[in-house]
Design a protein around this nucleic acid. Structure first.
Lengths: 342, 342
DNA sequence: CTGTTAGCGCGTTCAA
DNA sequence: TTGAACGCGCTAACAG
């Protein structure tokens, strides 16, 4: 493995200085046409390409945004909704000539991952940002935008009004007459119990559910509550567990991936008359699942907005609002039916 | 924006040398417990975290693999099959404590993107690697693994036997009696015509189709041939175009994303009796589309294998075979029917 | 065993 | 057009 050619080699070969070589590549107008020609020629002959890491190091930037995965790859990247978000972020990066670096937990630690991430700023999703992690961002002067995170005045966030959206979701179900309901929630962050006061997305949505129940004067105790990873598999396991001990007329899911898993189980068990409503609206990806009734929110939009905010922060713009709300809507499909009184 | 705390600040504050500070973080056993304690304490007080870029620069690595997008984000990341591949790569990166950097074309140039990518190695997919790009990889000493690329003795590649798989695909169709067939191919790389001799995936598959036709003594001229981006939208547009001027009994698609688009159009136009067969097997993601008949290949497996090869190359292992073949199989669904003679 | 000095990696840029 | 300093952390070589 021969040593890489460096700027010094080109300087030596041409007789010009390192500075001149640097100019030839970055500001050709600063030196004579002849010098530029000679230098570029020598660079070609010696197979020289300025090393991007040395360059970035010198310039003090990375030309990359980071997308911090709150959980392991197997879990996080298995959610089609997440993929929409990533697409949105990636498009904005592309526009800015940036790369997008996916950052998995390092040695199972999100905090370690942030410490070592070679990026100019980070976007994360559904992560509870505790004191420790927050400290790392501060110490590294690393700007952060949090999607679907816990409400927090000190962190830039992008989300929908989850409480209102969840209330709408459950009310649509109640309107159809369902009273025997199973709710499949998202897994509260592993550390959530250490942060009783963190206003997570799960808690916000649960508040919405409670509001809906209250509006219909229904007791909370009549609801079955489970949690599952936001994957098809998570939905399958959860549905099987619930069905083994009870018989709801409707499954209310906090993610479409879970809803699809539930539908699979219902279809296998011949229980197609049971209703299902999802959350996310991954119809964009799965044009063949138009029939899933769900609460739609645009993952891509969240990604776009987050990346735009991050680039604004990197540009030093300070007049950026801390909270950004995205619209959501009810998407009528075929999986939420009038309750059937047998 | 206050200046970042550096290793020198900690050295000054504690009275130890920079070396000692470095040791405290990287080889605590190298110095006394007391020194480590003092230094780490001072680091905490001064909010010091070693800068990862400076560290990587010094160590000569990036701790990141690159995934080079052959086209714009909007196109590439819209393909669920691509997402499977990325998941596979990401999992291996995670195992190695690496990040995964998505690299979009820079100023519309894939070559520019490679020049500036701050990664230790690159995986790409479906890219024709011309002389210029190849030169950049060589000059940068950047290892490369190509998925679904043009066959090439000098490049590490991972793929299936596309010719045989395509032949199988079309033969399944012919077996069912179809003779009026529309094939929707992938877009040959924009530069493909400049590389008449490049053995691209499209060309390999077309050879397979020809073999199938020959085996059934069918004239090539009776086939309708279109090309479309590997997205749902690409399938929709292509199907609409084809149906406006002809009436095939079966659509043979080179990607499931396209097949789903076709199915959408057929369903909208009340033409559900027309058959469709896809390619890829994105069933993993779309558990609700089990009915699509397709040629299955594991995108995730390609991602895993590619990343493993890349890490092996980074470890300096030279006994790695240039070509890696992955299995494929026929997946029977419900969208390929016996031809109906009205 | 503990700790330090000095120089490296590679491009960028200020002051001349 | 250039010499020299700089960014920041790592580490070979060396001294006590």
């Amino acid at each position: 493995m021969a040593k890489r050619t460096t700027i010094q080699d080109i300087a030596n070969k041409t007789g010009y200085s390192k500075t001149a070589v640097s100019f030839a590549f970055n500001s050709p107008e600063r030196i004579s046409k002849e010098a530029v020609g000679r230098i570029l020629q020598a660079a070609k002959e010696l197979d020289y390409i300025p090393d991007p890491m040395a360059r970035n190091f010198s310039l003090g930037h990375h030309m990359a945004l980071g997308f911090l995965l709150p959980q392991r790859v197997e879990t996080t990247l298995h959610n089609p909704y997440m993929q929409q978000v990533i697409r949105g972020v990636a498009e904005v990066c592309q526009e800015h000539g940036y790369m997008l670096t996916l950052i998995p937990p390092l040695h199972s630690s999100v905090e370690e991952a942030v410490k070592n991430a070679t990026v100019d700023g980070i976007i994360t999703i559904g992560l509870i940002i505790d004191k420790n992690i927050r400290g790392v961002f501060r110490r590294r002067h690393l700007p952060l935008v949090s999607i679907d995170g816990a409400a927090d005045d000190e962190i830039y966030s992008v989300s929908i009004d989850d409480t209102a959206a969840a209330r709408m979701q459950l009310e649509k179900v109640l309107e159809k007459g369902h009273r025997n309901i199973a709710i499949i929630s998202l897994p509260d962050d592993a550390y959530a119990d250490r942060f009783q006061n963190a206003d997570t997305i799960v808690r916000r949505r649960k508040r919405g559910y409670l509001e809906a129940l209250k509006a219909y004067s229904i007791s909370q105790s009549s609801i079955i509550l489970e949690a599952a990873d936001a994957t098809i598999d998570g939905g399958i396991k959860s549905a099987e567990k619930i069905l083994s001990s009870s018989h709801p007329t409707c499954f209310v899911c906090m993610s479409d991936a879970v809803a699809i898993g539930v539908i699979n189980v219902l279809s296998r068990q011949g229980l197609e008359d049971i209703s299902v409503i999802g959350f996310d609206g991954i119809v964009d990806d799965m044009a063949s699942v138009p029939e899933l009734t769900t609460i739609y929110q645009s993952g891509k939009e969240k990604g776009l907005k987050s990346a735009e905010i991050l680039f604004r922060l990197l540009d030093g713009e300070v007049d950026t609002p801390m909270q950004t709300l995205i619209p959501y809507s009810f998407h009528e499909g075929e999986t939420l039916k009038e309750v059937s009184w047998k």
